[in-house]
Computed example of a mutant assay.
Amino acid sequence: MRRTESIRPANFASLYGVAVSFCHSKRRSVMDHEIESFQKDLLASVRQMKAGKTARTTEVKLSTAAEARAKVGVSQRAFAQLLGVSLRTLQDWEQGRRRPTGAAQTLLRVASQHPEALRDLQSI
């Protein structure tokens, strides 16, 4: 006949504590490794930035409306009034949600090529 020993509550608690402690230390070492890796990557990035190296560059092309407004040098509200359109319409043109049509395209082209003409209109 084989005799088995039952785990007493005190023994079970100590075994459970060891297991939990092991899991926490394992998690902690993984987290420590992740933090260390992050710090190394961050330091490398800072060194690259200081050296003038870039991983990628992003160029944002201005819409014709935004470019024209920038050349005239006025706020969105003032530019919209000069063009005779609502502020929302101008914002839609600048964000690329809508495109100006017909006469508005021509007026934007004039504003872009001759910003002083619209500045003169502003004073009227």
Rank of each mutant, 00 (worst) to 15 (best):
Q113S: 10
R98N: 12
D32W: 02
A70D: 01
D41K: 14
R77L: 07
H33C: 13
A19W: 03
T106L: 15
Q91S: 07
S29E: 13
A117W: 01
V18A: 11
L107R: 09
Y16I: 07
D120M: 12
L87G: 09
V72C: 06
Q113D: 09
Q81I: 04
Q122S: 10
V85I: 15
A19R: 15
Q113M: 03
S37V: 14
G102D: 09
A65G: 08
L90H: 05
V85P: 09
S29M: 10
P100Y: 03
Q122E: 15
Y16H: 11
A104H: 09
G52N: 01
S14M: 04
A78G: 02
L118K: 02
D41V: 05
E36V: 07
W93Q: 03
L62S: 13
T64R: 10
R27T: 13
H114L: 14
S14E: 10
A19H: 02
G73L: 09
F12K: 15
A104R: 14
R69G: 02
A65I: 01
A19V: 04
K40V: 05
P100K: 10
R97Y: 04
A80Y: 01
A51R: 08
L108K: 03
E34K: 12
A68T: 08
L42W: 07
R109W: 00
G102K: 04
H24P: 00
T57S: 14
L118V: 08
M49L: 08
S37D: 04
A103I: 03
R47A: 04
P115I: 08
Q48S: 13
E94F: 00
R27L: 11
G73A: 12
Q81H: 12
E67M: 10
K71H: 12
A51E: 09
M49H: 06
R119Q: 07
G52C: 01
A117H: 06
Q122L: 10
D41T: 13
A19P: 02
E36G: 15
L15W: 05
V18Q: 15
V74E: 13
R28V: 08
S25T: 15
K50M: 01
A103P: 07
Q76D: 06
S29I: 02
Q48M: 11
G96S: 03
V85N: 06
S75V: 00
V60R: 10
Q39E: 15
L15N: 07
K53N: 11
V18D: 12
Q91M: 01
L62D: 13
S25H: 13
R28C: 10
S123A: 14
V85H: 05
V85D: 03
R109M: 09
L121K: 11
G102Y: 00
A44M: 14
Q48L: 09
H114P: 06
E94R: 06
S112R: 15
A55W: 06
V60A: 07
V85R: 08
A80T: 02
K40R: 12
A111F: 05
